[in-house]
Amino acid sequence: MNAYVNPTRIISIRASSLGDLFDCPARWEAKNLLNKRNPDGARTRLGTAIHEAVTQWDHLNLIGEEVSLEECEEILHHQIWQPNEEVDWSDLNQNDAESIGQSLMHKYITHIVPTQKFIGVEVRCESLILADLGIELTGTIDRIYENEDGELGISDIKTGKAAVGSDGVVKTVGHAPQMGIYTVLAAHALQEPVTAPARIYGLTTGKTDKGQHVGIGEIESPAEVLLGTEEDPGLLHHAAKIIKHGTFYGNSKSMLCNEKFCPAYATCKFRK
Rank of each mutant, 00 (worst) to 15 (best):
G165W: 11
W89T: 07
T195H: 00
V123S: 10
K253Q: 14
K107G: 01
A26Q: 13
G101I: 08
N258Q: 06
F270Y: 15
C268L: 05
L128S: 01
G174Q: 03
R37T: 15
K36G: 13
L190V: 03
M255N: 13
V164E: 12
C268S: 02
A186V: 10
E231L: 12
V67T: 04
M105C: 11
D96V: 12
D156A: 00
K210Q: 05
R14E: 08
E151G: 01
T8M: 04
P233Q: 01
L227K: 07
A30L: 09
R271K: 15
S99I: 10
K241W: 14
L226A: 06
E224T: 11
E146R: 13
P193T: 04
H111W: 01
L227R: 06
M179R: 14
Q94K: 15
L18D: 02
P39F: 01
V123W: 14
H238R: 10
G250K: 13
L203W: 00
L76S: 05
H188S: 12
L227V: 03
G47R: 09
A189S: 13
G101C: 02
T140P: 02
T44A: 12
D23S: 15
K269G: 01
P39M: 02
P222M: 03
T8H: 06
C125H: 06
L185V: 06
I100F: 09
S12M: 07
T195N: 06
L21A: 05
E230G: 00
S127P: 10
